[in-house]
Design a protein around this nucleic acid. Sequence first.
DNA 1: GAGCGCTCTTACAACGTTGTAAAAACGAAG
DNA 2: CTTCGTTTTTACAACGTTGTAAGAGCGCTC
Lengths: 337, 337
Amino acid sequence: MSKVAPTLEDVARIAGVSRATVSRVVNGTRNVDPELQETVRNAIEQTGYTPNRVARSLVTRRTGTVALVISGAGGGSDVFTDPFFGRVTAGVVDFLRGHSVHPVLMLADSDHARTEVVEFLRQGSADGALLVSTHPADPLPARLLEAGVPSVLYARPGRPMPVSYVDMDHRVGGRLAADHLVAAGRYNITAISGPMDVLASQDRHAGFRDAMARHGFPYVPTVEGGFTAESGAAAMHRLLVECPDLDAVFAANDLMAQAAVDVLHEHGLRVPDDVAVVGFDDSAPALACRPQLTTIRQPVERIAAQMADLLLADLEKPGQRPKSVIFEPELVVRASA
Amino acid sequence: MSKVAPTLEDVARIAGVSRATVSRVVNGTRNVDPELQETVRNAIEQTGYTPNRVARSLVTRRTGTVALVISGAGGGSDVFTDPFFGRVTAGVVDFLRGHSVHPVLMLADSDHARTEVVEFLRQGSADGALLVSTHPADPLPARLLEAGVPSVLYARPGRPMPVSYVDMDHRVGGRLAADHLVAAGRYNITAISGPMDVLASQDRHAGFRDAMARHGFPYVPTVEGGFTAESGAAAMHRLLVECPDLDAVFAANDLMAQAAVDVLHEHGLRVPDDVAVVGFDDSAPALACRPQLTTIRQPVERIAAQMADLLLADLEKPGQRPKSVIFEPELVVRASA
DNA sequence: GAGCGCTCTTACAACGTTGTAAAAACGAAG
DNA sequence: CTTCGTTTTTACAACGTTGTAAGAGCGCTC
């Protein structure tokens, strides 16, 4: 059975030196006689010693973990089926593993849960927080800031505050979609927006609408969706009723775009011949969709990695002023438009 | 700025009692005079005290975290785009949050990474491991067992060993698919299997083939896939070449089934009129697919929650003998077959 | 009113590490 | 042969918590 783990003390006794010397051999090997080093290393080998991380954390005040918090989203379980969060996780995990830092996954979908997250971090269970917060009214960023927890946000905060964040220029994304559809000669262009209480949705739509206006289209029939497939399908149905002669749809994410394509097919409309469809994100559904989606690429994994990078930098040298890094979207032309 | 966190000592001084008394108020409130309790609570309120989890862990030898390890899968990043892992994560997170336990996400896709996982757990950074290991040759389960780390596996281990696990009866799943296709009057039934070095794939296929044999079909044309959309499409192409008059396909997961449907459409074949398609898992693509997939439901979230439950039970009362819980699959009839 | 059994509270020693200040070892220089 | 620097090693006090054994307070009984 797993006998009790050996400690520094045990190693020191076997090597015939003091705890401190062993400690110095284990971490940065400064000022230790090479011969002694060898002896100590042997003793470590012999005992199978492995430093106790908790004890180390207690004195260094560093745990080597960060919290990855998904905040704001309503239903806890659906979150992980949305490709967006999977990609964020992938980007974060991939970056952190190169730095021997481990992410603790937390959901902050209720007030109770948010309190728990703040407590967790105040208790020093993690060194900082990576916060994916979609709703601008989310109180969590402010609460973490107030608690003095080093944090970096994915997406700019709802109200200005001194905190680092990464983001993408969603307005440019909207503009790219508009430019593409207009250049393709579409006239009856419509949109399925994301939930309007989400900043990214607002920006995507504003960018789209502004560009359309510049192209001479003062009004864009729009139905608000909820970033889910069901909401996308419902929105498409309504658009077809309100605007039967539409020849293009800009959907604020790929999930809704895919659902829209299905609805169009059900109505006997061909994509892109009758109706052009542009999505947003360039995530898995964009490729799974038939026809494959023309979409606006958001480099989620890179953005997420950058977020982790900013946090580690802040942990390394605390007290720097907040930073922001904004990524540029990119039009990916496939078959749907 | 965030002043240094208050400690038990501070609270004790303000309340005019000793550290131990405060400690007893904070956790299970046994044997403390109600009046004193009130005083202490006020002091806690006043200082904004929150117990330091690391210090607590050092003495209790419990961290309140478990490692959620994704092992075996090749590419680190794709993992999280596979709906399966998202669902496992959702199930685990959802269960654990009710128990104030937090999952640390780890990828074990290389030997180096596996060593890091074992070290992490031996160092006491987490109380136990939830291991999603797909390849039977994966050395991680054995190494964790050897290191005395409490663990529970998703899927039975490659070789028998005394460790708890949860699983589903994949053979029954294969049988359900075969029965359904035969009952629907299909004659030229084919299969796209999962990667054959994965136990779940073997079982699904074996169950399918055995049932087919019982129905009088001694041979099932089969192409091996890799659980990805691309591999599913490639497999479907090959099947169409080798077996042009096929009228049914059983794909070992929904991702491949969806890709197969697309390929069939490209060949001008209608689903289900010309070819029936049955998937496996009942994950998001099953609903996104047109027509929606008839599939074998695997209750991934419930299985994952059960896995977490077993681990917590083992942590609660260590040294019990290993347990296994096997779930039953279920046929979900939709439009594709 | 001394002794006894309660309940409640308090010191104190862990837990396993790191960092600092003091001590020992060892040459080299005067 | 002492004195002084330099390098290496050691002892000891943290870090913030919990658990245990000893102690204080207090109402009973005899």
